Computed example of a mutant assay.
Amino acid sequence: MNEQSLAGQAAFAPANTADIADAMIVSSGLRIEVDRRRGRGAGLNPGGRFEPQRRETFDDGWQTLEELPPFKTEVQIEKPRTAITRNESPDIPFDRSINPYRGCEHGCIYCFARPTHAYMGLSAGLDFEARLFAKPDAARLLERELAKPGYKPRVIAIGTNTDPYQPIEKEWRIMREILEVLERANHPVSIVTKSALILRDLDILQRMAEKNLVRASLSVTTLDRKLARTMEPRASTPSKRLDALKALSEAGIRTSVMMAPVIPALNDHEIERVLEAANAAGATEAGYVILRLPLEVSPLFRDWLLQHYPDRYRHVMSLVRSMRGGKDYDADFSKRMKGAGPYAWQIARRFEMATKRLGMTRRGMPLRDDLFLPPNGSGVQLSLL
């Protein structure tokens, strides 16, 4: 095998490509051998959109070079200046969040956070799953930020970008350190994850739940193990996520289920079944998000769909575009989460009827923020008076 550098060429076909032939062009020259990407979600690893060159592997016919090594998970340390990320998006019910990690080993092919790896000069494809960044100083930075004069406590969301309980958390334990800071400060937190590893921190979550300071959401996109394995290769199995929901609920923790994303003609037929299973496990709240395909996610998802479900390619993408004004994605705040048009309306009504029948709420009672105690431990600047 050899590598070829192509300067100034587009890494992807146009985002609104509607033909399978164009999707095949997406794969041409970019596809990574199965043995190199085993256990990963993406089949491509194109260069970042800000890079001046694109590299492709090709066979030069001489068979003189060794096979390229498989993609192994590599973790680098990132040194951010702050732990809390702020946002003013009108369609998001929180104004602050924390991301213990950049990139996610779960490898969910549809992950809307994939394009952020371009800011690190890396690919939104396999690099996003295998070349990760950990923030070991996150808890210390958080404690310092919570101690600032005038800080106003509001719910901090964790897991809305990359999963805080992805496999590397077993070793790095950054999420647990963050929870310890939040518990000491009586600060409300909302967690979303696809991992049963959340049960490791059941002790902290249970104590916080007694003060109505925590909500835990498990993202369950399908009950089909085969679909989950190809679509979310390193996340917990659907049954493990439901077991985690049950354990959290039985421990007195407010639990909800997120069906994110709902993918037309792929998992949308499971809406009622997922909600029923989650409700039986103790979830009292539920939410959903329609498939989002911003920037690099679109060609990555289309390539994956063509490889695993070629018979559904046209149907899936046709329905996606029917909800996005004829495009693969519409970033309008009023449409990006729920879509628009008849099919999106149908999904919304089905979800509404199912949650009503099961007695589940779309958004429960707010978490408490009146118990907040500013930290005064190590790493916090003391007052001069």
Rank of each mutant, 00 (worst) to 15 (best):
Ile168Val: 08
Glu210Asn: 10
Lys194Leu: 04
Val181Thr: 03
Ala244Asn: 08
Ala244Met: 04
Asp163Gly: 02
Ser195Ala: 12
Thr222Arg: 04
Arg176Glu: 13
Lys170Gly: 02
Ser239Arg: 12
Ala280Asp: 11
Arg176Leu: 02
Leu291Phe: 01
Leu182His: 03
Thr237Glu: 10
Gly287Gln: 14
Glu169Ile: 00
Met175Trp: 07
Tyr288Met: 11
Ala251Phe: 08
Pro264Asp: 00
Gln166Arg: 03
Arg254Gly: 06
Ala281Arg: 07
Asp203Thr: 13
His187Leu: 09
Asn161Tyr: 01
Lys240Val: 08
Leu293Asn: 03
Thr160Met: 11
Val262Leu: 04
Leu275Arg: 08
Leu266Val: 12
Asp163Trp: 00
Arg173Ser: 11
Arg200Ala: 01
Ala247Thr: 14
Met259Pro: 06
Ile271Leu: 09
Ala216Arg: 10
Glu169Arg: 02
Ser217His: 14
Gly159Glu: 03
Pro167Phe: 00
Ala216Asp: 09
Thr222His: 02
Val262Thr: 14
Glu232Phe: 01
Ile174Lys: 07
Ile158Glu: 00
Asp163Tyr: 00
Ile204Met: 12
Ala281Thr: 04
Ile174Tyr: 09
Ser190Cys: 15
Arg207Asn: 06
Thr237Pro: 00
Asn161Ala: 13
Val289Ala: 07
Arg176Tyr: 04
Thr284Asn: 14
Lys240Met: 13
Ala251Pro: 10
Ser219Gln: 09
Arg176Gly: 12
Leu202Phe: 01
Met231Thr: 07
Arg273Ala: 12
Glu250Gly: 10
Ile290Cys: 14
Ala157Trp: 07
Ile158Thr: 10
Asn212Lys: 15
Lys194Gly: 07
Gln206Ser: 15
Pro167Met: 02
Lys240Trp: 08
Ser190Val: 11
Trp172Ile: 02
Ile174Ser: 07
Arg184Ile: 01
Leu179Glu: 06
His187Trp: 01
Ser217Tyr: 15
Glu250Arg: 11
Pro188Asp: 00
Ser190Leu: 15
Tyr288Gly: 09
Asn279Phe: 07
Thr230Ser: 14
Thr193Ala: 11
Pro294Glu: 09
Pro188Val: 01
Leu291Tyr: 01
Ala196Leu: 06
Arg229Gln: 10
Tyr165Trp: 03
Ser256Ala: 09
Leu218Glu: 13
Lys211Cys: 07
Lys246Met: 13
Ile168Thr: 00
Arg200Glu: 12
Ala196Tyr: 15
Ile158Trp: 06
Ile263Thr: 13
Lys194Ala: 06
Leu197Pro: 08
Ala209Val: 12
Ala247Tyr: 04
Glu232Asn: 10
Glu171Val: 02
Arg207Glu: 06
Val220Trp: 05
Val262Trp: 04
Pro294Gly: 07
Ala216Gly: 06
Ser249Met: 00
Thr284Arg: 15
Ser239Lys: 09
Tyr288Leu: 12
Leu197Trp: 06
Trp172His: 07
Arg241Tyr: 10
Leu293Gln: 10
Pro164Met: 01
